[in-house]
Amino acid sequence: MASRTFETAAGPRSEDALPASATSAVKIVIVGGFGVGKTTLVRSVSEIRPLTTEETMTQASTGVDDLAGVERKSMTTVAMDFGRISLNDELVLYLFGTPGQQRFWFLWNGLFDGALGAVVLVDTRRLEASFDVLGRLEESQTPFVVAVNAFDEAPSYTDGELREALDLTDEVPLMVCDARNRESSKGVLLALMQYLHSLAMTSEAT
């Protein structure tokens, strides 16, 4: 029987259980390159220890050195971390730390559908790592804010320099944060929500 190999899941610790009254959930996506601080930010605000979900991607590839032209399959495991914040008795917020490469996003169908918005985390040592993500979010019309995670050794730029380098319009909120700091990370999420609030007010007024 399949049960021989399935590790029976322990499930959440009792103190991590959501109340029975929890009726709906919303999500925010934290997106950025490897090592930019996504998991750190999620951890600093989440009420549960961040959890990981994995998908396996099968890629068919025909090797150039493969004389027979035989199709080979390689498998890659792609992981996504997430955390959770209970906002009140009914509403739960999930935070997803999503890999920056958009070619992985399809693995979690609907990840951005119905998301409140996104936080693009940026490391000023690797600004170019964000170009792809920013373009994608604009295309999909996902509202986002940009947060520079201030690593000690990283060069600092003025607001104007960053906006120009990242090709950001003036409306997009841009801020500096320390993903290790709870208040700072909370501030980033609040900035996104205030931005969404202003967008919603504008669209209601027209």
């Binding site: 929890a22 009726t23 709906s24 959930a25 919303v26 999500k27 605000v45 914040i85 209970s86 906002l87 009140n88 509403l91 917020l93 119905g114 409140l116 709870r182 909370k186 999420l189 609040l190 929500m193 205030q194 969404l196 609030h197 967008l199 919603a200 007010m201 669209s203 209601e204």
Partner: peptide, 24 residues
């Protein structure tokens, strides 16, 4: 299954999230 909150812009949900985050 309890479906996710409806798609935005829903001002009440935005306000609930802001309020919840401020109370963290």
């Amino acid at each position: 299954a309890r479906a996710p909150a409806p798609a935005l812009p829903d001002i009440d949900i935005i306000k609930a999230v802001i309020h919840g985050l401020q109370n963290l």
